[in-house]
């Protein structure tokens, strides 16, 4: 790994160090958990709400799991199109995690790291069994599980944005607003691409 690629290197390191990071987060292993970290306090006069903070924290975990899924394509015999898409998802979502962490830190809020996907299960995230099945599948079987899984995963992200904007006063802070809209734009298009790739797989 070269010096110019610290972000991805660190992401991998954090996946490796998942167990110790969990200790830092002082979180249990309740897989139904939708948030982690200390109680959220919103300062008076802030342009963001608790829902914005929860959205950013939850989406970090959501993205982190997507990156783990995407990187499986490298070893599990994904077809070239699925591989290209998985790299796109990986390279798209790593910098988005940095943006979300920067946002949370700027407002003095707790910023989960990339191990948080172990502890937070947001909409559309896969279960450990589903991940295990995907990690053991090869070739076309992997492609199918990956595409199905990532479509569900992306749909969950869209639902998180939908819920954010439905929450009173949320989604107004401009960085959160732009970020949430970018998630919808990118992931809606990717769901379309994945559905098409799914339709191109040989029948079971």
């Amino acid at each position: 790994m070269t010096a110019s690629r610290p972000i991805i290197a660190f992401t991998v390191a954090c996946v490796l160090a998942g167990a110790s990071s969990r200790a830092v987060a002082q979180s249990g292993m309740d897989h139904s958990k939708h948030r982690m970290g200390p109680e959220i306090v919103i300062p008076k006069g802030a342009l963001y709400t608790k829902a914005d903070v929860e959205f950013m924290q939850g989406m970090i975990a959501h993205h982190a799991q997507a990156i783990v899924m995407a990187r499986m394509a490298e070893t599990n015999g994904a077809n070239p199109q699925v591989l290209k898409l998985s790299r796109k998802i990986d390279q798209s979502q790593v910098p988005e995690i940095i943006i979300m962490q920067d946002w949370l830190r700027r407002y003095g809020q707790f910023a989960p790291d990339t191990s948080s996907w172990h502890d937070m299960r947001m909409d559309g995230m896969l279960t450990d069994d589903e991940l295990k099945a995907m990690s053991e599948a090869k070739g076309v079987a992997f492609d199918r599980l990956f595409l199905d899984g990532m479509i569900k995963h992306h749909a969950g992200a869209l639902k998180m944005v939908d819920d954010l904007f439905k929450s009173p006063g949320a989604g107004q802070e401009v960085d959160a607003n732009v970020f949430a809209n970018d998630v919808v734009t990118a992931q809606t298009a990717e769901i379309g691409i994945m559905r098409r790739l799914l339709s191109l797989l040989p029948p079971k």
Binding site: M29, V68, E74, T75
Partner: peptide
């Protein structure tokens, strides 16, 4: 719990070499 952690480690190990392969530019 133990099984889940083992699985996590497996994932982590499998992703490492591929980061290098992803270099396309």
């Amino acid at each position: 719990m133990r099984m889940i952690r083992g699985f996590t480690l497996l994932l982590a190990v499998t992703v490492v070499p591929n980061v290098v392969l992803a270099q396309t530019y």
